[in-house]
Simulated assay, not measured.
Amino acid sequence: MLIKHYKGWELEKEMPNTFEDFFNRSEVAFEEDGLEKTLTITYVQYFEEFLSEFTPYDKNPLFMAGSREVEFKDIVAIATLLNQPALSKRKRIFVRSQSELQTLFKGYDFSKLPDILESIENKSALQLP
């Protein structure tokens, strides 16, 4: 698997009567078996208030990767993909509860993430076994 890029952003309202501004989206683009794929995870912004329940971090930004400040919304998709590679078959995941978010990260070793993201920042991609 070749990780090409990752990013996260806050959704914005497209119409006055929609709820997009309550959600964040995280995305990781990768190549697997010669195919370009993207995994997108959308979750409620409010979940970020409980970072320490899902991760070893307690506030944004979480850490630096190269010259980039990495926030929680940046890592959700890539950490999920690294933790649960079988989800590479999915395109989109909508996380409805904190327990779903905890499940995506369960057992993941976040101590490796800064080095992984640093490599992506420096090399513009990272080949994983």
Rank of each mutant, 00 (worst) to 15 (best):
L11R: 15
E12G: 06
E14F: 02
E14L: 10
M15I: 11
T18E: 11
F23L: 12
F23K: 11
N24P: 01
N24C: 13
R25S: 15
V28Q: 06
E31Q: 13
E31S: 12
D33A: 15
G34V: 04
E36L: 14
T38Y: 01
L39Q: 01
T40S: 14
I41C: 09
Q45E: 09
F47E: 05
E48T: 08
E48K: 14
E49H: 15
E49I: 08
F50T: 08
L51Q: 07
S52M: 08
Y57V: 04
F63T: 01
M64E: 11
G66A: 05
R68I: 10
V70M: 04
E71F: 07
F72R: 10
K73Q: 13
D74G: 04
V76R: 06
A77Q: 01
A79S: 14
L81E: 03
L82E: 02
L82F: 04
N83R: 03
N83E: 02
Q84W: 00
P85E: 06
P85L: 00
A86D: 12
S88V: 00
R90I: 01
F94M: 06
V95Q: 10
R96H: 07
Q98L: 13
L104M: 10
G107Q: 05
Y108K: 09
Y108V: 12
D109W: 04
D115N: 14
D115Y: 09
D115S: 15
S119P: 03
I120M: 05
E121G: 03
K123I: 03
S124C: 04
L128W: 11
